[in-house]
Amino acid sequence: MSFINYSSREINCKIVYYGPGLCGKTTNLKYIFGNTAPDAKGKMISLATETDRTLFFDFLPLSLGEIQGFRTRFHLYTVPGQVFYNASRKLILKGVDGVVFVADSQIDRMEANIESLDNLRENLADQGYDLDRIPYVVQYNKRDLPEIAPVEELRPLLNPGGVPEFEGEATNGRGVFATLKAIAKLVFMELKRSRGT
């Protein structure tokens, strides 16, 4: 649910990074934060446990430039990946404009990926969204690790709908901005489409 202010000439959108525990959602945000010009970003907030696991959410406000004389600002959020934090995950999906699903490419995390994707679909439905209709991209993260599944194997399970997908290595930044750009584009296309004449 975007927020448009005609007075301050701003368009604000909300993007949520979703995925199983330890798949690299926070790492994606940290990389974006570390590689964006200071005037284009706000503070990054992490509500994490003592062991650095996301407890409620991470938050990063980001400016992308102007469209039709309006400043565009994206609020990036992550959800806690651990299964038992589902109540928090649901809350963070409220008012979302676009979703990035960060999958963990390691073979032994396949079940966790599928479980998280099912949970995403369910939680979106609870908020009145349909995963097949909202702006949505997939990132196969951790491609730099050994013991990973080939993308050809991941795709039918995690991206049967054929949305834009990217290989990622969030720790060194590969694929991070490509993923962000893709979801930002889809969000604007959807805004235009939903209001188009």
């Binding site: 039709q68 930002a184 584009k185 805004l191 235009k192």
Partner: peptide, 18 residues
Amino acid sequence: MSVLEEITDEDIENLFNE
């Protein structure tokens, strides 16, 4: 919400070319 209707594909592309 006319501003949204007026967004062009070019606008969206340009956002990422800076």
